[in-house]
Design a protein around this nucleic acid. Structure first.
Lengths: 136, 136
DNA sequence: TTATGTGCAAATCATTTGCAAGATC
DNA sequence: GATCTTGCAAATGATTTGCACATAA
């Protein structure tokens, strides 16, 4: 893989995020620094970086994929109300994979654990109650 | 919510599946019984049924959402190679939610646990080795 | 007969791809 | 200079929506 300024920009921009932005968020932000970068380039590079393990693609929200610059195993919380994705800094349960492997015939390489519920903000801003159900 | 024949057909068709089909799989299958049902109707009804908790929407595969007629809490395995989703009949770890709630400020209602790896079929059919990485 | 649901086509959103031009090695 | 990468526009795939017609309550 050759060097490319755009790829470096994409990776850097993602690393600025504590949250887990979608491709088009990265794109919008980068356009301000580099007004000629294209959306296709952002998608291409996010894909490349995810494939070579430099970043992680999060696929557990309906709609657009999110990306995470933190590739160490860790868990997430997704708000059923606004779709926000945040980290859960609890310890990773390595034993789960062993347990699961007793029940399936394939080869397990790891697991994703995603907690669901209503985030702080949605809770206080009313949107909470019973949930909009919009994300289901 | 009024009764509708099409909604009943969608729900019934989904219940026939041990696997977890996407909307267009349900649509193709239903077209054979009911050649006039429309794709929009299938999408609309899957959405309604998921919102009222009759079925479950699985959002952890990139691309099309999958649907599950089994709404009891249970875990899944996703093949990184072919995208297939299968059940993992291991016991659900209720304590995880309590642990996670110590780390976040929102309200946790539950969790999804998804094991990843390479399924039996992909393993034997060669596609396995190192994985295509296509789904990343 | 009023509210709801359907079918169809067009619209929208997320993502990928073909291709000519530009950058890297 | 051969190969890889970009930007743009068009293509694709998943899902939703507007609207006139059909159906349920």
């Amino acid at each position: 893989m050759n060097y490319s300024r755009q790829r470096e920009e994409v990776q850097e921009q993602l690393s600025f995020h504590h949250d887990h932005p979608t491709a088009d968020v990265i794109y919008s932000e980068l356009r301000e620094k580099d007004p000629t970068i294209s959306l296709a380039t952002v998608y291409r590079n996010l894909k490349l970086l995810a494939q070579n393990g430099t970043i992680r693609r999060l696929t557990f929200v309906s709609g657009a994929d999110h990306f995470d610059s933190n590739i160490d195993p860790h868990y997430h919380f997704v708000c059923d109300c606004c779709g926000k994705v945040i980290d859960v800094p609890m310890q990773v349960a390595e034993t789960l994979d062993d347990t699961a492997s007793k029940y399936i015939s394939g080869n397990i390489t790891g697991h994703d654990l995603v907690f669901r519920g209503v985030c702080d903000e949605c809770m206080t801003s009313g949107r909470s109650s019973v949930g909009s159900g919009d994300m289901l």
